[in-house]
Write a protein that binds this DNA or RNA. Structure first.
Length: 414
RNA sequence: GGAGAAGUGGGUGAGUUGGCUGAAACCACAUCCCUGCUAAGGAUGCGUACCCUCACGGGUACCGAGAGUUCGAAUCUCUUCUUCUCCUCCA
């Protein structure tokens, strides 16, 4: 949700910035005019309410002084009607306002490259040379014949895009989670364990709702949803709070399962566990002041990057262009890991600074002296665990189909 | 799941025969004064959001949430959520 005051103050500037994300200028014009109408109507409402308060006070006086109240009563009654009308009007305008407001994506940072889609993302750097194989490297689902991943049984107990990890695969998955959490802890990210089901308010707070409902699993009969990412519960931990400045930045890490319907992804990545309805992920979330946010963003990018390096997985950093960024993000850096089986880099982490956008929705503020300011919220995967396992399988495979285990994971595997 | 009790500002906690209470008091906190030594005393300020105003200042809403009764509700009614206690149940 963008800052409506900023839009009013600098309409052309905001319009320019949002144009880079293909937001229709006309929509912004409409937003501005709806806001004007809303303010006007609300003011009329408030002045009618002020009258009502005044007259009601008089009423008490008259009663005490035993004065005649029939005239006053008539006035007050008429005014009451007016209030009801204005209330209805105000409600309608506010609804319109919110509908537009919640449908506008975040303003990209000025230095974010403009582009249509992922083809125009900009590579920042490549780290670690993909190793060359003396044989044709297999894809992870072929390697999974070693028993690490059981696709059929996943489908049996649930449906397609679910799988079962077993044996050494399961041990590695668990080792990865522990390794990641420890790694993050060392860099100052405090561990939290949170609900994987959240309410509507939380999903509104981080921007998944109202626009992306079709990709969420909803609990039948309740206003509850399975989380599509740990970002939702962790960020919303501070929903509606005012945090003292000296407690910032708050840096957290959490391991959760994530659930996505993958609506609109039919036919993509149908083999393997790259795209599942349920997947484990270790998440990083930070809550910072405006001044801290760039620095912490960098720390998060480094944290995830160094983790890949520690695991010995070749990757590249990509700066997403305006067209490829998520709805709430002002800037995003994706980490893409090298998959020898596919001979391509695939997303394994995505780190975003949403600036004030989520904070405004979730009402997360901090107190700087006497002022209450919106925090900046940042989130990023500290690697998707499933995809990390895929990367390990493919990068550490031997010709006979066996898979070596990265050094850093060995202490975690008994 | 069943039966009771309760939900007020950062905290404790008044207010529940409806109007003068957005809300006493105390604590905490902030600034200033006094004092002078590791403590104390005094003054003032101290919720959130939106709107009007260059500013001083003013308006509206909010006493868990939503709806209702009323000229007027923190105070009455209904719904709902949460917490606590007692059962029941359970990893």
């Amino acid at each position: 949700m963008i800052d409506i005051k900023l839009l009013n103050r600098d309409f052309d500037g905001v319009t320019q910035m949002l144009k880079r994300r293909n937001v229709d200028t006309q929509l912004l014009e409409e937003l501005r005019s709806v806001h004007q109408v809303f303010k006007a109507v609300k003011q009329e409402l408030e002045s009618a309410q002020a009258t009502q308060n005044e007259k009601s006070k008089l009423f008490g006086q008259y009663m005490k002084e035993k004065k005649d109240i029939t005239e006053l009563k008539a006035e007050v009654e008429a005014n009451k009607l007016l209030i009801t009308q204005k209330q209805e009007l105000t409600r309608l305008e506010e609804e319109k306002l919110n509908t537009i407001l919640t449908s506008i994506p975040n303003i990209p940072d000025e230095d974010v490259p403009v582009g249509e889609d992922e083809d125009e993302n900009v590579e920042i750097k490549k780290v670690l040379e993909p190793k060359s194989f003396s044989f044709t490297p297999k894809e992870h689902w072929e390697l999974a014949e070693n028993g690490w991943i059981d696709f059929e049984r996943g489908v049996k107990v649930a449906k397609s895009r679910f799988s079962v990890i077993s044996g050494m695969g399961a041990k590695i998955e668990r080792a990865l989670v522990n390794f990641m959490l420890d790694f993050n802890a060392e860099r100052g990210f405090g561990e939290v364990s949170v609900p994987v089901i959240t309410n509507r308010a939380s999903l509104m707070g981080t921007g998944q709702l109202p626009k992306f409902e079709e990709d969420l699993y909803k609990i039948e009969g309740e206003e509850l949803y399975l989380i599509p990412t740990g970002e939702v519960p962790v960020t919303n931990l501070f929903q509606d709070e005012i945090i003292p400045l000296n407690e910032l930045p708050i840096k957290m890490t959490a391991f959760t399962q994530c659930f996505r319907k993958e609506a609109g992804s039919a036919g993509r990545d149908t083999r393997g566990i790259i795209r599942q309805h349920q997947f484990p992920k270790v998440e990083l979330v930070s809550i910072t002041s405006a001044q801290q946010s760039d620095k912490v963003f960098q720390e998060m990018v480094e944290c995830a990057s160094d983790m890949l390096e520690a695991l010995g997985l070749p990757y590249r950093q990509m700066q997403l262009c305006t067209g490829d960024m998520g709805f709430s993000a002002a800037r995003t850096i994706d980490l893409e890991v090298w998959l020898p089986g596919q001979a391509t880099y695939r997303e394994i982490s995505s780190i975003s600074n949403t600036r004030e956008v989520q904070a405004r929705r979730a009402k997360i503020r901090y107190k700087d002296g006497k002022k209450n300011l919106l925090v900046h919220t940042l989130n990023g995967s500290s690697l998707a665990v499933g995809r990390t396992m895929v990367a390990i399988m493919e990068n550490y495979q031997n010709e006979n189909g066996s898979i070596d285990i990265p050094e850093v994971l060995k202490p975690y595997i008994k």
